[in-house]
Amino acid sequence: MKNKRQTGRGVTVHDVAKLANVSIATVSRVLNKPDNVNKEMSERVLKAAAQLGYTTNSAGKALRLARTRTIGTLLPRLDDPIFSELAHGIQETLFAQDYAGFLQTSGYDNRKIFDAAFRLFNRGAEGLLVFGRVDDERLLEFIEKNPIPVLQVYSYLEGHPLPSVGIDNARCTQKIAELMLRFGHKDIALISGPTQGNDRQQSRLSAYEQMMRDHDLNTVVQVVQPGYTINDGGLAFRRIIEQNPKVTAVMCNTGLLACGVLSECRKLGIDVPRQLSVSGFEDMSFAPLLYQPLTTLSVPVGDMGRYAARAMIASLEQGESLTSMQFETSLILRDSITVPPKASDRAA
């Protein structure tokens, strides 16, 4: 017979308070009004609650008895078109099925998403959709102890203990690199988003480095910091050409970074694609409208969101097991790529 520490059943606020060595009132404040409690105390209580598998009585009862018909979604941020498109696909599907959706931003580092996820669970979320791979050990431990369905969205992840719906990020990067190589480029640079706790950027960076090694070519990489903007893409490109003036092509791991590169090229008087070829990742709606239409990958982000939401609802309604699903991408060739320039035509 399992005890309450293993299952979370029968756990009370008294148990959490005892384990965290705080008062019951403090536990209540942390779980219901976290902004009124200092960070150290809050982390102590949340750790104890997670260890015991405890959620507040209202949320717990709803999950066991009444059904909240609410599904939570964790996204890095909302001001990126890709995240917004995924959120739209999820939300419209939930609405059509008489479900409500909670959206919570949690940053790019998926090693540190437990607090955001726990807040959704504590508000009654019956299931959780997470953008990217779950790397947070506390969250994985909590999920193991509690029967809450979780689905990773955007990245297709073989071998992970949780099911995933998305694309093979490494293979996508290989497609773009192969295109650059077919055009004859050898001095190819990569601009990456933040890699810590970010499986998408890790996979794309590793794939680029492997492709360059396979063809006995040098790697040129710039990694921008979390919270990056279009301007950061331009600054990363400026560093690349200052340190590696022979570069003839730049692969960007996101569409926003590619926009930054194109903007910087215009400022510097660099002709795209005659002097420099540029590619993006994820075909944002405005990619063909840029001053130099952008070569990129079409990623069915909205379809992923709709599929994930339907799968989660089926799991909650019919008890169907959540399974992994790989989505395909297509390469969109536009005017931002051509053959490498002659030495005399290269940007100074």
Rank of each mutant, 00 (worst) to 15 (best):
M212T: 01
R213Q: 14
H215P: 00
D216W: 06
D216M: 09
D216L: 10
N218R: 12
N218G: 14
T219W: 07
V220M: 08
V220I: 15
V221M: 09
V221H: 11
V223D: 11
V223S: 13
V224F: 05
V224C: 00
V224Y: 02
Q225W: 08
Q225L: 09
G227N: 03
G227C: 02
G227A: 06
Y228F: 13
T229K: 06
I230Y: 00
I230C: 02
N231Q: 15
N231S: 11
N231P: 04
G233F: 01
G234H: 03
G234N: 06
G234Y: 01
G234R: 02
G234M: 04
G234K: 02
L235I: 06
L235D: 04
L235K: 09
L235V: 08
L235W: 06
A236P: 11
F237R: 10
F237C: 07
F237G: 06
R238Q: 13
R238D: 02
R239A: 10
R239E: 15
I241A: 09
Q243I: 12
N244S: 12
N244Y: 15
P245D: 06
K246W: 12
K246G: 00
V247G: 12
V247Q: 10
V247P: 13
T248M: 09
A249P: 13
A249S: 14
V250C: 10
V250W: 01
V250E: 00
M251Q: 15
M251V: 08
M251A: 13
M251Y: 14
C252S: 00
N253E: 10
L256K: 03
L256V: 04
L256E: 03
L257V: 02
A258H: 04
A258T: 01
C259W: 11
C259S: 06
C259V: 08
C259Q: 09
G260P: 03
G260L: 05
G260K: 04
V261Y: 02
V261S: 04
L262H: 07
S263Q: 05
E264Q: 14
E264V: 02
E264C: 02
C265D: 05
C265P: 00
R266M: 02
L268A: 10
G269Q: 15
I270M: 12
I270H: 08
D271S: 14
D271E: 14
V272T: 12
V272H: 05
P273F: 11
P273L: 14
R274N: 14
R274E: 12
R274C: 10
Q275R: 10
Q275V: 00
L276S: 09
V278H: 02
